[in-house]
């Protein structure tokens, strides 16, 4: 029995287990997404989050301990945001042709998305912090997470994943 406990202590201290679980859940989710004919409701982010959240709840592992390992995947959001410059540069000729229309519609559409989300949540009587977390929803998730307080931002990826397809 002491052997099992030692293994558990090792797994809890190293990032290996959380990282492996995250990648396994992601691969399973991607496979499921393909099996479902890439249906938007079988969103891989949603499935992977559900698998891992269920695993944490079932095993009693604290989210903070899981995140201590999974933060290495989380960290890549920063470089990935910077990397968006590459496709933007690739498409720049196209983007420039319609720059005014693109910028104006993205700004107006983004403002509309924020207002619509907040208005619906307010009308249905959601808690203020929930309502506030809906405002930056239309910004891409890495940006929204920088804008939002961490506590509310943690909700966003899941909700966003639910409906962004």
């Amino acid at each position: 029995m002491s052997g099992l406990a030692e293994i558990w202590v090792y797994l809890a201290q190293e990032p290996l287990a959380a990282l492996t679980a995250t990648l396994l859940a992601w691969l399973a989710a991607v496979r499921l997404h393909h099996w479902c004919g890439r249906h938007p409701l079988a969103n891989p982010v949603l499935i992977a989050v559900a698998l891992l959240a269920g695993g944490l709840l079932a095993s009693g592992v604290a989210y903070r301990d899981y995140f201590a390992g999974a933060q290495f995947v989380h960290f890549l959001l920063g470089p990935a945001t910077v990397a968006l410059a590459v496709p933007l540069h690739r498409q720049f000729a196209l983007v420039r042709q319609s720059a005014v229309a693109a910028v104006a519609s993205v700004v107006l559409g983004g403002a509309f998305a924020a207002a619509a989300g907040v208005a619906i949540a307010l009308a249905l009587g959601a808690a203020p912090e929930v309502t506030a977390s809906l405002a930056p929803r239309s910004v891409t998730t890495p940006v929204a997470m920088g804008l939002n307080a961490l506590a509310t931002a943690l909700l966003l990826p899941l909700l966003w994943a639910l409906f962004a397809g």
């Binding site: 990648l23 992601w26 989210y63 989380h74 949540a121 249905l124 909700l159 639910l162």
Partner: peptide, 29 residues
């Protein structure tokens, strides 16, 4: 998508809040 998963799992910290406000949240989103 993979990069959003660790933060997304943070939903386990907010299950009571989700249980309370699931209707306005889903409709707003």
């Amino acid at each position: 998508g993979l990069l959003f998963v660790p933060a997304g799992v943070g939903v386990v910290l907010h299950l009571p809040l989700l249980a309370r406000d699931w209707a306005p949240l889903s409709l707003a989103v």
